[in-house]
Design a protein around this nucleic acid. Structure first.
Lengths: 109, 109
DNA sequence: CCATTATGTAAGTCGCAGCTTACAGTAAGC
DNA sequence: GCTTACTGTAAGCTGCGACTTACATAATGG
């Protein structure tokens, strides 16, 4: 269910850009916001959303808040995507079994 | 760039529900919409979005339009997600080299 | 101290995405 | 033919999310 949240968060281009900028390593807010097409407060708001979704983590360093990528936050979404491919294999296998043996009215759940 | 579109499309819960219902195999619109919390036209609109994004494909069968899952449409998003993990390995390697060169004590924590 | 830097948050605006109802078209069945 | 089932699309409403500016606060440096 959490992958729904992840998708929602990742759907925003600005938030994706933030994540991209964190690929190189942890950074303070002002560094992340530098050169962005939106204001610094906007970036702060996005960081809050990203943090709540578990995609970034925050640590204080003096007056600065250092944000870092949190890859585990992407794991669930990844698994969900993978499940679509598993489906394909499973469906193929079931279909193969079904057509291969004479079944006697077995009931699905 | 296209994974952005995919994310945007998948961000909607109703569209995800449509995809889930197509896991079992191709279905006509009225079957997909049956029992959904939204109207049938709404489902039609979502199907158009899904089709434009390459996540489903459409085939006519008499008066019915049969929609089917198109898993290739998810591939690019999958690759993007994977790239984050590649990053992790790369960053680890770089960090390892850096600390190996300096061999100094830790700063904090 | 005082000024500066770095950040979060409140308040308000605005565009758009998703929904609904209504309508149009097309195939099939009687 | 006429009616019924299935679907797409137009038009319009509405809520929400992303943005801005303005402000409050905390750490740092001189």
């Amino acid at each position: 269910m959490a992958y729904g949240t992840t998708l929602n968060v990742l759907a925003d281009p600005t938030r994706r850009e933030v994540l991209e900028r964190l690929r190189g390593g942890p950074r303070p807010v002002h560094a992340i916001a530098a050169g962005m097409p939106v204001s610094r407060p906007a970036v702060s708001q996005h960081l809050k959303v990203l943090k709540d979704a578990g995609l970034v983590e925050e640590r204080s360093e003096g007056v600065r808040r250092i944000y870092a990528l949190r890859r585990e936050g992407l794991a669930e979404l990844r698994d969900w995507l993978d499940s679509f491919w598993d489906d394909a294999l499973l469906a193929f296998k079931i279909e193969a079994e079904r057509t291969h043996r004479q079944t006697k009215g077995r009931i699905d759940e």
